[in-house]
């Protein structure tokens, strides 16, 4: 079981939907094709008002996420965080990450 003190903070405003988190997780943990440790969902596109679009991506960790227990025990970052192309994911103690939520909008914190 993952240590529940830790979580993932995702600044999804910058997430481009590149799926590197999905793939890094799948190859690290040998997750079969069709299952995911983290999965990137697409929202939109739809036009809220002229020239104003809702079109963003949201990575969601699944039950197969163990917060990269083996890696983090060695002091490494989870592989999704390490490889995220937008560098918009952060791993840390939930209480520290939670403080960052008030910095700016469009962030999500996963307690795992």
């Amino acid at each position: 079981m993952a240590n529940s003190e830790y979580g993932l903070l995702i600044d999804y405003h910058w997430c481009t939907g590149c799926k590197s988190c999905e793939m890094a997780c799948s190859v690290e943990h040998d997750i079969p094709i069709g299952q995911f440790g983290i999965r990137v969902d697409q929202f939109g596109p739809w036009e809220n008002a002229p020239d104003d679009w809702t079109y963003f991506f949201m990575p969601v960790p699944t039950d197969q996420c163990d917060l990269c227990a083996e890696r983090t025990a060695k002091g490494k970052k989870p592989t999704c965080v390490h490889h995220c192309q937008a560098a918009c994911m952060e791993y840390g103690k939930i209480e520290d990450l939670a403080k960052k939520l008030t910095d700016h909008p469009k962030q999500v914190l996963y307690a795992l």
Binding site: S20, V27, H82, C84, A87
Partner: peptide, 10 residues
């Protein structure tokens, strides 16, 4: 700076 795309990851 650490990032990789799908192609190198596989």
């Amino acid at each position: 700076q650490g990032r990789l795309c799908l192609r190198c990851l596989t």
